[in-house]
Design a protein around this nucleic acid. Structure first.
Length: 219
DNA sequence: CGGCCGATCCACT
DNA sequence: GTGGATCGGCCGA
């Protein structure tokens, strides 16, 4: 597989996430670990911009310890922890100092399916192995330990290949998933029409907290 | 296949 | 202290 598919040049990722996101459709992300190798062909991605431009972006309020990788050079993984349970993976865009990233929302496991099933026993079908950003990260075996890894230096353990050419007429765009405020209206989600590995659209849900046990009597 | 709802840690204010 | 770029178990069809 990798012999027939070239590494995606870092130069491609020097543009904004909005420009690069549709180009990532059909590309192949690979993670090699002691457990083995899993490759995923991307079918759904979401673009996030930088400080001041995008309320839905982790970089909206400037650089912090968490989002520092977003402000670094392009071609690196930004992996963050969410909902107390899940990891999600992004590809960083734009030159150092300018934050932008593309969330990997869905894909098709094209290599290492056995290992992916081992990591995702709850999946009900092979299409569910990497449908949804946290599922995709889990199928690849990506956690916080992968934050900041370089996809483009060819040294691994993560790689990004150009993959086989996709029919451009299959590219669709629409509002981002699970993002509230002004960010919801932005058509910055991209997917390949007809793929079974594209996650269903869900509008932003206002969170209601689970009731926490309080020690003192409320009277 | 799809709807409902609880889970559970971290970053930020 | 608070909410989040989400998912799985359970149930019904």
């Amino acid at each position: 597989m990798s012999d027939e598919s070239s590494v995606l040049p870092r130069k491609v990722l020097e543009r904004s996430a909005l420009e690069v996101a549709p180009l990532l459709l059909g590309c192949v992300v690979v993670h090699e670990s002691p457990e083995g190798r899993v490759a995923i062909r991307l079918t759904e991605v979401e673009a996030y911009a930088g400080a001041g431009e995008d309320p839905g972006s982790h970089a909206h309020r400037g650089e912090t310890a968490r989002n520092a990788v977003m402000f670094g050079p392009p071609g690196h993984l930004y992996v963050y922890f969410t909902y107390g349970v899940h990891w999600c993976a992004n590809v960083v865009c734009l030159p150092r100092g300018r934050a932008s990233a593309i969330l990997l929302r869905g894909g098709e496991v094209i290599e290492g399916e056995r290992l992916a099933w081992g990591r995702r026993p709850a999946a009900r079908s092979s299409a569910e192995l990497a449908r949804g950003p946290a599922r995709l990260a889990q199928a690849l075996g990506l956690t916080g330990a992968a934050n900041g890894l370089d996809l483009c230096d060819g040294r691994g353990p993560v790689f990004l290949y150009a993959g086989e050419a996709v029919d451009r007429s299959l590219v669709r765009t629409g509002p981002r998933t699970g993002v509230g405020g002004d960010g919801a209206a932005r058509p910055w989600r991209f997917w390949l029409n007809g793929e079974r590995t594209v996650s269903p659209y869900r509008a932003h849900m206002p969170q209601q907290r689970a009731p926490r046990a309080s020690a003192a009597g409320a009277g």
